[in-house]
Measured scan of single mutants.
Amino acid sequence: MEVVDPQQLGMFTEGELMSVGMDTFIHRIDSTEVIYQPRRKRAKLIGKYLMGDLLGEGSYGKVKEVLDSETLCRRAVKILKKKKLRRIPNGEANVKKEIQLLRRLRHKNVIQLVDVLYNEEKQKMYMVMEYCVCGMQEMLDSVPEKRFPVCQAHGYFCQLIDGLEYLHSQGIVHKDIKPGNLLLTTGGTLKISDLGVAEALHPFAADDTCRTSQGSPAFQPPEIANGLDTFSGFKVDIWSAGVTLYNITTGLYPFEGDNIYKLFENIGKGSYAIPGDCGPPLSDLLKGMLEYEPAKRFSIRQIRQHSWFRKKHPPAEAPVPIPPSPDTKDRWRSMTVVPYLEDLHGADEDEDLFDIEDDIIYTQDFTVPGQVPEEEASHNGQRRGLPKAVCMNGTEAAQLSTKSRAEGRAPNPARKACSASSKIRRLSACKQQ
């Protein structure tokens, strides 16, 4: 084909351009004929944790799935940006308080904090938690009735009371019990989460009196709706648990309003109706937990002794299953770290194939690490110290990083047969305790 000078094309009309061969290198194709290559998922490591896909996002930050490269346990990490926390009232204080509380709590029905990582340079905090497959609110939203069968609701409620009793025994008032803060594992274990607005009572406090509340409006008791200066913290949790039980068994809320002012007005009056299909035992329990006067409201001991709580409820309806993943529609909620794991395991070791967030990740503290002497050669063979940054567990980050890069360049065919977990650990520049 004859090559045409581009400067001469402006002298031709459209018809003349076609005659000189423009149609031979300008093609129009339908979008259905285009085959897009999927974007390669680059592996990203935060300390010893391999990052997966997004699980959810809230006002405080994002939650992603991660894999512990040492234990191969599935975890969830809450990623918090200090810049964003400053824009939220009491944001930083709530996060630090939640970390302090979770560090000393150990119960099967309370979410466990596994690790805390802090990135000084990017001003990011990573709260590594045990993995929960789904939230209770997500399960309720997945069915038209917006409720659980009585047998399933009873099982979840009993676990909620177990976890709540443990928190109260530790002198902690949750203040925000609701389905949105109750998570579930694949085995059906309920976990109380989000202790950001919780309050730890003084060890020598005479009672459970509280003065502040930041919980969700629909789950607040009349004493808070009416603006009382002080109130019983434990009875606030009992009320919120009662509203939660009402919601998961009926699909409704005892109090509603077009806006928060109308909602608080209705809560302050204390008038509500219980659907007739709840039955006398459940209705009596709800009335005891939603008692207007805090002094007359049920205690956890009274809830445990109630006939509806103690009764064994046979399954009359099919239980609400864990819904498919909202993004991938995966009904099994498979591990989202698998594509990243395959990338590390299947590809040659190259620095361009993975990302390490930083050479140094500070753990379990908000301060910069200490310094240790770096050896410097002298005339008599002895070495003197220069400062060298280290990880919180004493690992020399720069030395590990250099060693990792040197190993990656060394030709050794046997290394390709290593397991995925050992490869992740070798790529991680800074081991965590």
Rank of each mutant, 00 (worst) to 15 (best):
G135F: 07
V63N: 07
G52C: 12
F309N: 00
K311S: 05
N90P: 06
M51H: 15
S19A: 05
L160V: 09
R40D: 15
A417E: 08
V243Q: 08
Q112L: 07
R331S: 10
K64P: 05
E138K: 14
P326H: 04
H202R: 01
R333F: 04
Y36T: 06
A398I: 07
T250S: 11
P179H: 00
R40C: 11
G187T: 14
G163C: 01
G394R: 08
P339Q: 13
G180V: 04
D358H: 02
G370F: 12
A93W: 15
V95N: 15
I322C: 08
D352P: 14
S31L: 06
F354Y: 10
G15T: 15
Q100I: 15
A206G: 07
P339C: 14
A200F: 02
V236C: 12
L167K: 00
I172V: 08
T244F: 03
I161P: 05
M392N: 03
H154N: 01
A417S: 09
D355L: 14
Y118R: 06
P217C: 02
Y292G: 12
V338C: 05
S421C: 02
Q433H: 08
K178S: 03
R106V: 14
K41Q: 05
Y292V: 05
I267H: 12
E265S: 12
D284G: 06
T328W: 14
E256D: 15
M127L: 02
H379W: 04
H107T: 06
L190G: 01
G58P: 01
I260G: 07
K416R: 13
T13I: 06
Q7A: 06
G180M: 05
R383H: 14
T395I: 05
K329A: 14
H107I: 00
D365F: 06
S193V: 04
Q305G: 13
D207A: 09
E145V: 03
F204A: 06
R425Y: 13
C210G: 06
R426L: 11
M125W: 09
V368C: 14
V66L: 07
E138R: 00
G242M: 00
Q37T: 15
K191C: 01
H202V: 09
P6L: 06
Y118F: 02
L285F: 05
K108R: 10
Y246M: 09
I79Q: 13
A389C: 13
K388A: 08
Y36W: 00
G385L: 04
R297G: 00
G268T: 13
Y118T: 15
Q214E: 11
L184T: 12
P294E: 10
F298G: 00
E376A: 11
N393K: 05
G135Y: 10
R425E: 09
K83Q: 02
K191R: 11
N226A: 15
E349F: 06
R147V: 02
A398T: 10
I260L: 09
A417I: 13
I424A: 14
S421I: 13
D352A: 05
R331V: 07
A389V: 03
V337I: 12
L400Y: 13
Y36N: 14
P222R: 05
T209E: 08
S422N: 03
S307T: 08
I356T: 14
L245Y: 00
P319F: 12
K124N: 09
S299L: 03
K122H: 15
R106H: 15
I111P: 09
W332C: 02
P326M: 12
L290W: 03
P373S: 12
P89C: 09
S421V: 11
R87Y: 14
K122N: 13
T328E: 12
L290G: 00
T244D: 00
T189F: 09
D350A: 04
I35C: 11
P294L: 01
D365I: 12
G15D: 15
L184M: 02
N90I: 04
Y49S: 06
G52M: 00
T244G: 00
R409V: 09
Y340L: 14
R409N: 13
G276A: 11
L182C: 08
C151T: 06
L117S: 01
K287W: 01
G91R: 06
G394A: 10
T189C: 07
P314D: 12
P339S: 11
H202I: 10
E57D: 05
Q399K: 04
R425W: 06
S216V: 03
P38W: 04
M125Q: 15
Y246E: 01
Q137R: 03
T186N: 01
W308G: 01
E65G: 01
L201C: 07
M11S: 10
Y246G: 02
H154M: 03
L344W: 13
K287D: 09
L105D: 02
D162V: 08
D277C: 10
G180I: 11
A389T: 09
R40I: 15
T395A: 04
H379F: 07
P323V: 06
R415G: 13
D53E: 04
R147L: 02
R384I: 06
I177S: 00
L72G: 12
V390T: 14
I274F: 07
G15E: 15
I79C: 01
T13G: 01
P280E: 15
L80S: 02
S422A: 12
R297A: 01
K96E: 02
E357V: 10
R297C: 00
E293W: 06
E396R: 13
H174G: 02
G268P: 06
D229P: 15
L184N: 02
Q432D: 12
A225I: 11
R75W: 01
G135S: 15
I99G: 04
M51Y: 15
S307A: 12
A406Q: 14
F219Q: 14
I29C: 11
Q364A: 13
S69K: 10
D277H: 10
Q37P: 08
C158W: 02
P369I: 08
R39E: 00
T212C: 10
E98W: 01
L160P: 00
S169L: 03
P280G: 12
K82S: 08
S307F: 11
Q123G: 05
D258V: 11
R42K: 09
N181P: 00
T212S: 05
Y246P: 00
I99Y: 00
A318C: 09
G251L: 00
N226K: 04
E357C: 11
I192Y: 07
G279P: 08
E317C: 12
A218S: 07
R75F: 07
N266I: 11
